[in-house]
Design a protein around this nucleic acid. Structure first.
Lengths: 226, 226
DNA sequence: AATAAATAATAGTATTACTATCATTTAGGA
DNA sequence: TCCTAAATGATAGTAATACTATTATTTATT
C-alpha cells in the first residue's frame, strides 16, 4: 500500500500553490535540497532557478521570498511529524509509551526509509529543521507571522505533546514549556553532537539512542508526580 | 567602586581590535544596538556607518563581515556571564545553591541596572542573545569556526555548569547536554513567552520567576540521585 | 617637525532581492 | 479541433548588499 499523504498548507505561505503544478513541486523539492546544500543565507532564488532550469521571476510567482519558502518547508515537516505521531500513538492508552514514541519520532533520522516522494523528502526536511528550524521564527516579523498562523503546525504539535504530558501527570505545572523544550532539544542536541560535541555527552557520529535516553530521563523525572 | 571589566577576546574575531580605538568601540557599541533594532538580516555595515558617521570601508577594517561582529558580541556576552557566575558562586560550597544562582543569572534581564559602559550594554547584549544567539553557530562554517575557537566562551560556560552538576550528582549521565539545554532554554523560553506564548506556560510580559521555576524543576528532578 | 598609522572620501564590482513587460507555451473547455 | 486563459519563459531594469581598491586627509607618536 502506498499512501499519498496530503498536508493542507496555510495559504498565506505562498502566492500560488506549489502542489498544483510540476514547476511548483520542483521549486519546493529542489529548494529544500539546495537550502540544505548551501545553507539558508547563501541560498537564493537565482541559484535555484538555474538548478531547475527556470527563471527567478517564475519562482517569485510561487513564493514572496525565500523566507516564505523556508517556513513552507518547515511547516510541512511539523505537520508531517504530527501526522506520524497521531498514526503511531492512536491506539495507545498509556501516556508513558506515547511520550516515548513521540521522542523517538522526533529524534530518529528517517534516513532512506523515510518518505521520499516526488515532492518533499523526509530526510532532507529533517536536516532542514536541524540547521534552519529556528530561523523560521527568529525574525522581526514573528508576531505578524504568528498572527497569520504561520507557526500553527509547530504550535499544534507542541499542544499535542503538552496534552499527553498532562495525561501522564495532570498536576505538572509546565507541560507546554516542557514540550517545546523536548521539541527544540531533539534537534539542537543532534546538531551539537554532530558539530559542537563539547556541548553534549555524545560523541560525533554516534547513534541517536543516547539523545533519546537523555530526553526521556529529562522528561520523565521532571513530570513524575511528587 | 567601579570596575572596568576587560574581557580578552579571540583575535580571529576581528582584523583590528575594536577595543583599542574610539571608532572601534563605537562600531561594537552601536553595532549591537542597531542589530537589535533592525534584526541581524536587515542589519548592514552601510547602515551602521551612517549611524556612527563613518564609512563602510572603515568598519571593514575592523570586522571581516557582519557575522564576525555578531560572534564577537555574543562571545563578549557569554564571557561576561561566566565572569558573573564565577563572581557570584565563588564562595559557595553547596552545588544546589550554585546551580540556582546560575539559572537566575541566565534568565534575569539585567535591565537598567546591568553593566552599561561606553562599550557594550549588558541589557542590549541580553536581547541580542535572545534574538540572534543561535545564528552564531547555525551556519555552514560551524566546524571551521569551532576550530578557530570562536565558540570557546559558550563551551567554557557549558563546561562550568556541567562541572557543578557533576558536583551535585557525580553519577548523572548527561551533565553537558543538561547544561546546554539550560543555556539554550533560558533564552528560548523567554523568547517564546514574549513572542509565541502558546509554546510556554507563561503569559506574555510576565516576569521571569516562572521560567526560573521551570528550569530549576527540570534540572533538579533530572539530576537527583536515584 | 617628521613620519607612521588610522580614517575619510570616493569609486567600482558582482551579486541579491526583487518588479515589470511581453512573448510563447500548455492545458482545459466549447 | 480550435479558442482562450493561464502558466511559464525571456529579457530588462532597479535599488541595495557585500564587499575591494585607491588616494587624500587627519591624528597620534617619536
Amino acid at each position: 500500500m502506498e499512501l499519498d499523504i496530503r498536508i493542507k498548507m496555510n495559504e498565506k505561505l505562498f502566492l500560488r500553490n506549489p502542489e498544483e503544478s510540476v514547476l511548483g513541486k520542483k521549486i519546493v523539492k529542489n529548494g529544500l535540497i539546495l537550502i540544505n546544500k548551501l545553507g539558508f543565507e547563501e541560498f537564493t532564488f537565482k541559484k535555484l532557478s538555474i538548478e531547475i532550469s527556470t527563471t527567478e521571476a517564475s519562482i517569485y510567482r510561487y513564493f514572496e521570498n525565500k523566507h516564505r519558502l523556508l517556513v513552507y518547508l518547515i511547516n510541512w515537516y511539523w505537520s508531517y511529524i504530527e501526522y506520524k505521531v497521531v498514526f503511531y500513538t492512536n491506539n495507545m492508552s498509556n501516556p508513558e509509551i506515547k511520550l516515548k514514541t513521540i521522542i523517538k519520532l522526533l529524534v530518529e533520522d528517517p534516513g532512506d526509509k523515510g518518505l521520499n516522494s516526488d515532492f518533499i523528502s523526509e530526510q532532507e526536511a529533517y536536516q532542514l529543521i536541524m540547521w534552519e528550524g529556528s530561523k523560521s521564527y527568529l525574525t522581526r516579523n514573528v508576531s505578524k507571522d504568528n498572527k497569520d498562523r504561520l507557526f500553527k503546525p509547530y504550535k499544534d504539535l507542541c499542544e499535542r505533546i503538552s496534552c499527553t504530558i498532562k495525561e501522564y501527570n495532570p498536576k505538572y505545572k509546565f507541560p507546554h514549556s516542557m514540550a517545546s523544550t523536548i521539541l527544540e532539544m531533539a534537534h539542537s542536541q543532534k546538531f551539537f553532537m554532530q558539530n559542537l560535541p563539547a556541548l553534549t555527552d555524545f560523541s560525533k557520529e554516534q547513534d541517536d539512542k543516547k539523545i533519546i535516553l537523555f530526553l526521556e530521563s529529562m522528561l520523565f523525572y521532571s513530570i513524575q508526580t511528587k
